[in-house]
Simulated assay, not measured.
Amino acid sequence: MGMMSMRLPDELSEQLSALADATGRSKSFLAGQAIRDFIERESWQISEITQAVREADAGDFASDAEVSEISAKWQTHAG
């Protein structure tokens, strides 16, 4: 298991301590979970963006008719 040290602003450190006390978890566990969640979310976004760039590079765009259909749908449901 890797080890890392980091500096946190006092307010964030206090919030982390309070959350650790309230949940019965260690600050390290909570920080690790937060980093894990962040990495999963960011990795998903990067994957989606990479796929969209590949599609764009291949010329795979929505047709004018598809865009008009979606636009009409949103305008109908908007209000």
Rank of each mutant, 00 (worst) to 15 (best):
E40C: 08
T50D: 15
E11T: 07
T23W: 01
F38P: 02
A72Q: 05
E66G: 00
A22F: 07
L16Q: 07
G2M: 15
M3L: 15
S26D: 05
F61D: 00
E40D: 13
L12Y: 09
E42V: 13
A78R: 14
A58Y: 00
G79E: 14
D37G: 12
F29D: 09
D10Y: 09
S13I: 00
A58K: 02
S43Q: 13
Q75D: 02
E42D: 14
V53F: 14
E14D: 14
K27H: 10
S13H: 04
D64E: 10
G59T: 03
L16P: 04
S26H: 05
L30F: 04
R25E: 06
A58D: 02
F38A: 11
A62F: 06
P9L: 12
I70C: 02
D10H: 09
E11F: 02
R36F: 15
A78Q: 14
A31C: 14
D64A: 09
T76M: 15
A31H: 09
E11Y: 05
Q15G: 05
L16C: 06
R54G: 00
I70Q: 11
T23R: 10
P9M: 11
L16A: 05
R54T: 03
A18V: 07
V67Y: 08
P9W: 08
T76Y: 13
R7W: 04
S43T: 13
S17L: 12
A18F: 08
I35G: 01
A34K: 10
M1G: 09
D57Q: 13
V67C: 04
D10T: 10
F61T: 01
I35Q: 04
K73W: 02
A18S: 13
E55M: 11
D21S: 12
S71R: 08
V53A: 11
D10G: 07
L12T: 09
A72K: 06
D64K: 10
H77G: 01
E66Q: 08
S13D: 03
S63G: 08
Q15S: 08
T76W: 12
I70E: 08
I49W: 11
D10F: 06
E11C: 03
S17F: 04
M6C: 03
F29Y: 15
G2Y: 14
Q45K: 15
A65H: 06
A62S: 12
E14S: 09
I49F: 15
Q15C: 05
S43V: 09
T50M: 12
D64Q: 08
I35K: 05
R54I: 01
Q15K: 12
D64F: 03
D60M: 10
S71W: 02
E40I: 13
V67M: 11
L12D: 10
